[in-house]
């Protein structure tokens, strides 16, 4: 069973898990800003330190966190390789044609890799410690001011909520249809591109029909429960700020300040 509603959520009770999702979202934004503001290794070290504390407090095992990085390891290595080979600098170690390995290039690549690793790690920390449902709630709440410019915040949140509910169902269904067609000898693994694309048709058509049928029935069920859009609608769940959130908020503020100070006083990495 695939549980998108849980995403990659890692279910353990922890300080970080219990934080308000809005705060975690803001924290993530702050963290990304901090990473980009950091202009030298000291700044990144501060970011890494903060992230390390967050990981410790979240009780998500390090192996799990590293796995998120492993997913994009090629992207990271590729970026690093390009920079090592093309970055122009003064201390040249090796050159061949247009390629050139310099000290500056190596340092810059290392800097970039650290940045990318931190980025990936911090975003996956959010999804490890927050259920998609909580994220949706948080996003809706954060976007509420946009209602003033007539941005359909409620509708967007409802769509996300329904998607979270139905994506796992449709994934299960895909699996079931795929198995049924496999049992009828369908082959999805071999052959050229065209053959493979054509092989998807027996999955795609039943899946689309099912999705439409479900949408139709869900529409009826929503009608039957008096859905009339966001007008006069009340909301049962309210997110609440607690002492934990306050504490975490100060951490975030300290992080940004630290990185800005380091940028001002220590300058660029190279």
């Amino acid at each position: 069973m695939k549980d998108v509603a849980f995403g990659q959520y890692y279910p353990v009770p922890s300080f970080v898990h219990r934080l308000d999702p809005r705060l975690k979202l803001l924290f993530l934004i702050a963290f990304i800003v901090a990473i980009f503001l950091a202009s030298n290794f000291y700044g990144l070290a501060v970011c890494a330190g903060v992230l390390l504390v967050a990981i410790l407090f979240s009780r998500v095992p390090f192996g799990k966190v590293l796995r998120a990085v492993r997913g994009v390891v090629f992207l990271i290595l590729f970026t690093a390789a390009l920079n090592v080979l093309f970055y122009r600098g003064e201390t040249v170690y090796w050159s061949w044609g247009i390629f050139q390995v310099t000290e500056e290039g190596l340092i810059f690549s290392a800097f970039l890799v650290t940045r990318l690793v931190l980025l990936v790690t911090c975003s996956s920390m959010l999804t490890y410690t927050t259920t998609p449902v909580a994220l949706t709630d948080g996003l809706e709440s954060l976007l509420t001011p946009l209602k003033w410019i007539r941005f359909p915040v409620h509708e967007l949140a409802l769509i996300m909520s329904i998607a979270l509910r139905f994506i796992p169902i449709l994934m299960d269904e895909t699996e079931r249809i795929k198995n049924a067609q496999k049992a009828r000898g369908a082959d999805f693994e071999s052959g050229g591109l065209i053959k493979r694309v054509r092989a998807i048709v027996p999955i795609l058509i039943p899946l689309l029909l099912s999705a439409f049928r479900r949408a139709d029935e869900l529409g009826d069920a929503m009608d039957a429960r008096c859905y009339m859009g966001s007008k006069n609608r009340t909301k049962y769940k309210k997110l609440r700020f607690t002492w934990r959130d306050l504490l975490a908020f100060f951490w975030g503020a300290a992080l940004i300040t630290g990185v800005v100070l380091l940028r001002v006083y220590m300058g660029a990495p190279v």
């Binding site: 909520s161 509910r165 029935e217």
Partner: peptide, 15 residues
């Protein structure tokens, strides 16, 4: 109030 046939197609929320 109407309750329909398919248990999977009537819920809008995950919780």
């Amino acid at each position: 109030g109407v309750v329909f046939q398919n248990p999977d197609n009537q819920t809008v929320a995950s919780i």
